[in-house]
Amino acid sequence: MMTLSKETLAIQREPDVIYFRNKAKEYAVKIGMSMVGQTKLITAASELVRNMLRYANGGNAILEIVIRNNVKGVRLTFTDKGPGIKDVKQAMQDGFSTGRSLGLGLPGAKRLSNEFDIKSEVGKGTTVTIIRWKNGL
């Protein structure tokens, strides 16, 4: 996999979410992703950015256009220095929430992405990476 372009945005306040979503959409449009693909990507991004704001007081979001086997995609990486997740497996289950949300954030974002990766260490922080390919379902 190769990175074609890259940009890092700091997410500190709620309105940053809107700017970030628009940026992600711009990237998706640039590689010719379908309307449904774009919507899935920014919805997944929205869930993950909210988690970052709510549980870690913000963090960094990296936007990238990547290419693999001649297919382009958008990769988003969310890194925070928050409390981390004690039980990642449990957090990935539908309906599980430590806050008062629906508990669809992480599992929902995973379903909306073509590739999903989460790394978390208690006390250090969490990094979530998602990819949506141009032709992904």
């Binding site: 899935k40 919805t43 669809l104 929902g108």
Partner: peptide, 14 residues
């Protein structure tokens, strides 16, 4: 509701 939004919501589980 836009079609793309509806499809995404279903996938999200809502």
């Amino acid at each position: 509701m836009q079609p793309a939004v509806a499809i995404t919501l279903v996938e999200l589980g809502l």
